[in-house]
Structure formats: C-alpha cells, structure tokens
Amino acid sequence: MTHNLLKGKRGIIFGALNEESIAWKVAVKAVEEGASITLSNTAMALRMGTLDQLSKQLNAPVIAADATSVEDLVKVFAESVQLLGGKIDFVLHSIGMSPNVRKHRTYDDLDYNYLQKTLDISAISFHKMLQVAKKQDAIAEYGSVVALTYVAAQRTFFGYNDMADAKSMLESIARSFGYIYGREKNVRINTISQSPTPTTAGKGIKDMDNLMDFANKMSPLGNADAEECANYCVMMFSDFTRKVTMQNLYHDGGFSSMGMSLRAMNQYAKDLAPYEDENGKIIYG
C-alpha cells in the first residue's frame, strides 16, 4: 500500500548494487511513493551488480560516479537536476567499504593506506557530497539527506574494525554540516543507525550471522530488515519530518537501548550449563 508520501519529489540514491542492498529497496519504495529519482554508483559496482535492471524497472537514469571524486559528484548533482527537472528533494548516502575488513586485517594491525580508503569511501564521501550539493544549490528548501550508519559508531563490536571509525566520522559530519545547511538553506541532514543487515557489504563483517542473531535476541522488536529501513528512509524524505535534523536515529528494534534481554540471558545460561565430558568429569561453561 502506498501513501504518495513523495509525490512530485526528486531524489538521488547512492549505493544500490543488487536486490540485497538497502539502497535498492529505498529506491523502489521512493518511486512507489511518487518520487522520480536517479541512481548512482561506481563504474565497477555497475559492472558487478544489477543496477541496470533497477534502472529499467523504475525508469531511473543511472549516473556512474566515484563518490570520493568531487568532479564526479559535481556531474551527478548537475545531471540529476537536469534530468529530473528541478532541485533535488532527497538524497540517500548508502556507501561503505573497508579494505582492511576485506583483507582480514585486525584493528591492531591496520594497513593505514587501507584505513584512508575506508574513511574516504565510507565517510568523507558524505562531506564531499554535501559540499558539492551546497555549492551548486542543488537541494531544495527543506530537502532531506540521509546516510546509513551503525551502532558500532558508539559501541565496540568484534570484527567491525575500522568501519566503526568511519561511521563515527559519518555521524559527526551529519551534525556539523547539518547545522550549516539547515541554517543557510533549510536542508536537513540525518543518519539512520540500522540493525545489522545481510547486504553484500554487511556479509563481509566477521561472524555476521552471529551478530545478527545476538542483535535479534537483544532487541525487544527484533532486527529491522532492509524493507523496514526503506520505509523509515522514505518517512525521513517526506514532509512529515521537516524539522528533524542533525540526528542519529536508531532503527534497530530497540537494541541500542538494551543492556541484557531475557532471550539473550537464557541463551547465555544455556551455554554455561554444566556438562559431562567423555571421562565423566563435570565441566562448567
């Protein structure tokens, strides 16, 4: 069921790769709600993924761009305004990648060249995106910019590695730029801290299945899936949230407010239950 929340609005979706991507589902939901959009990802991602399929499905032009390149971002915003027939009403930043994670480098043995790439791709690209948009005056008054983040920006999670640093920077950029863009252009900037989600990028996190199970047991409402995240993004793009800005908004079933849940405690107790080894000796834990 649609509600025409984005009727007549124009948007840019960065980061859709395939049907597992949150950005893919946001794009579908935005068009269902009445928006016209452009899609953007790197040339390599376009070759690896199935974005052409989404483009045809939604009648949404694809603009190849490296989000770490100011020159490419200038092209994305200028072409989007031209193709869509006016200023942009909403933007989604759904971009994140860590070479250190991919190469299985632990946090106490980072490759610093990889770290710079992690920060540039996953966080600094957000600043570049906002700076380019502001200089072009490409975003309409009360436009909405949303970036996807994770609670590892505030808490330590085994295996999340230098992506945690990138997400911390991403959230800081939303606050710092949100003040300037809000004051001068009435543009709102927020981050959505999503439950662990089995996207192509998410699956690269060490023990992702265990992390998802733990989060699901901890969260009173359970994990929020990609479709539900898309619904939340659409609400943030809509006029119903015109005075929400500079916020990190948790969309995680309540996980971020929990200490210990009954389900997690029961699992913990079960794992620590005493048992007999092959010699009849009682083992605890």
Rank of each mutant, 00 (worst) to 15 (best):
M1Q: 01
T2E: 07
I13M: 15
A16P: 15
L17T: 01
L17P: 08
N18E: 00
N18M: 09
S21E: 03
S21T: 02
W24L: 15
W24A: 14
A30T: 00
A30W: 03
V31Q: 04
E33F: 07
S36H: 09
I37S: 02
T42I: 14
D72E: 02
K75E: 09
S80N: 03
Q82W: 00
Q82D: 06
H93Y: 11
S94E: 02
N100I: 09
K103M: 14
Y107N: 11
D108E: 04
D111M: 13
Y114L: 15
S125N: 00
S125V: 08
F126E: 02
H127C: 13
H127P: 11
V145T: 03
V145C: 15
V146D: 01
Y150M: 13
V151Y: 00
Q154T: 00
Q154W: 05
T156F: 12
G159L: 06
A166V: 11
K167T: 03
E171L: 14
S172P: 09
I173Y: 01
R175I: 13
R183F: 08
Q194G: 05
S195Y: 02
P198F: 02
T199F: 11
G202C: 14
G204W: 10
K206L: 15
D207T: 05
M208S: 07
D209P: 05
L211E: 02
L211P: 12
M212E: 03
D213V: 13
A215M: 14
N216Y: 03
K217M: 15
G222H: 02
N223I: 13
E227C: 07
E227T: 03
E227R: 08
E228Q: 13
A230D: 01
C233R: 03
S238Q: 08
S238R: 11
F240S: 12
R242V: 07
T245V: 13
L249R: 04
Y250G: 07
G259M: 09
M260H: 05
S261Q: 03
M265F: 04
A269V: 08
K270W: 08
P274G: 00
Y275Q: 12
E278C: 08
